[in-house]
Nucleic acid binder design. Structure first.
Lengths: 117, 117
DNA sequence: GCTATAATTCGACATATTTCGAAATATAGA
DNA sequence: TCTATATTTCGAAATATGTCGAATTATAGC
């Protein structure tokens, strides 16, 4: 897990920063338990992926939720795409893989995380 | 990665919070590239594990370093134990395993290889 | 074009975090 | 016991974060 450039350290730090808020971490776990990118959950599934549905689980103002989603998105942890009136959120699998590799010392790192900020 | 209690979410959020600062993340990666708990690095190794040695790598005030180490320790990420005048730091392997587990449970990733049995 | 719904942006405020230097504590050795 | 070294605690200041409500933007359907 050693041998990271200071840029890498900074990028991973912002990834963990995005996951450091309980509401954001909950959003991320909800999404990861739900759809894969490009798909949407079935109507009957426990959780769904549009912003409004996430809001129903969280008991925070819509503006706060929006702010949190932007943080997760900027960190590269989730993808967001409009579909009609709604915006569908999903876990970014590349970043999840990068995180997994980060925590495995003996693994060569192939994908560096790229935060969009 | 779903199905965590709100307590769990809170605990993991504070773990990620501890890793969200670049200095702290650097400390953690330095330690993880170094000793296992109970042992100390060889004198000639690039990095060592006592507080002062970490300080040499970081260019921050000793009091700031101390504060960061306390955060990492409180989060359960590292162990600290006095040995004479020095305090030796090491990665807590249980927490590292818990983190690894966190990012693997219950999460299907589309481009993950599937074993044929 | 108008209206309803979904989500974001903005501005403000309270709280938390990061950092430092100075002072305090702990330990080993003379 | 006195001194030097290692580390922590304390208090203060600057900056960042989390949150809300109000206003705004985007879209679909009538």
């Amino acid at each position: 897990m050693s041998n990271y450039s200071s840029d890498d350290i900074g990028n991973y730090a912002s990834v963990f920063s995005a996951l450091s808020n309980p509401h954001r971490l909950q959003i991320y776990t909800l999404l990861s338990g739900c759809c894969t990118p490009g798909s949407r959950c079935d109507i009957d599934a426990v959780t769904s992926c549009c912003v409004g549905d996430l809001g129903n689980e969280l008991d925070i103002a819509a503006s706060t939720l929006s702010h949190h989603l932007k943080e997760l998105s900027h960190a590269g942890l989730i993808n967001m795409q409009r579909q009609g009136k709604q915006i569908i959120c999903s876990v970014n699998p590349d970043m999840l893989n990068a995180i997994r590799q980060f925590f495995h010392t003996n693994t060569e790192i192939t994908d560096e995380p790229e935060t969009s900020r």
